[in-house]
Amino acid sequence: MDIGKAFRLLNQERIVFLLTVLLFVVFSLTLNNFLAAGNLLSLVRSVAVLGILGLGMLIVVLGRGIDLSLVATMAISVAWAMQLVSQGMPVYAAMTSGLLFALGIALITGILVAYAEIPPLFATLAMATFIYGFGRAHMITGTDVVYMPKDMGWIVELGQGHFLGLPMPIVVAAAMALVVFLFLKYTKLGAFIYAIGDNLPASRIGGISVRPMLALQYVISGGIAFVAGIITATSVEAMNTRVVNSNMIYDVILVVVLGGVGLSGGRGNVRNVIVGTLLIGVLMNGMTIMDVQYTIQNVIKSLILLLAIVVDSIVNPRDEQTGQQGDI
């Protein structure tokens, strides 16, 4: 195979995958303890939540949307659920309430996007502000941080337990990835999401109920956000609602687009998210071992994202003729 052909075979996903492998090899050779099983597990575990959130983002992005309220939904719904438990509500009831809250709020977002036709970028942005504000004002009493109550039962295992020697967050993330993969690949709804992301008017003409489908995407991502929140909270035994104001949501977007999911919709799958998440995991782990300052980690992370999209744009150039209007 000549070089030109190989070059053309590259796309963002492959570039990122190659980068990940390269970094992995470099770190294995240069860093002590990098290859240790414990380190590798903690590497994956550290990005498990990011990966799960990435799955939620993936589903929305595939339908040509974006969900900036993921982190807010995650933080507030779980913090509220935990507070309900500590106020004496049975664990299952509290968890169900939390999940229902997450789904309900996501449904509202979905309705805003699908029926009120507010641009998703803006609707989810405003909803994130609203969810955080509403949660802090009317749902969560006391400080920003809600600590995990003692009597959470087996749910604690989701964050702290092990399954066949693997930490539960990894197992949950893997299971979620499998479920989302199967959903997108083998169900009618999954195919509809791709169709809508690819060409919304055509899907509508083709008979897909576009609006309910759009709303459904946000509901699914809301549910996924709740699961991610449970894992986060049980891992560190608390939920800090201030996470809403951090740039975690940017990290979620990062892992999704890094793997090559197209923000213009219809392009990408679970594999892309896994690749993007792994790159971030390897990178952060390696830099943590090297004791790189947090801000510099950020710079390096974003430079790698930049590198990925620059290479992608060289390999798959977008030009004025083929560019989609309104595709930012």
Binding site: M127, G133, A137, H138
Partner: peptide, 24 residues
């Protein structure tokens, strides 16, 4: 001087409403 969450809440609601009206 509302409590810490009310500000963002009001902001979020107003924005959604305003943009909704504008879009329509």
């Amino acid at each position: 001087g509302l409590n810490s969450g009310s500000g963002p809440m009001v902001l979020g609601l107003t924005l959604i409403f305003a943009v909704f009206v504008d879009v329509k």
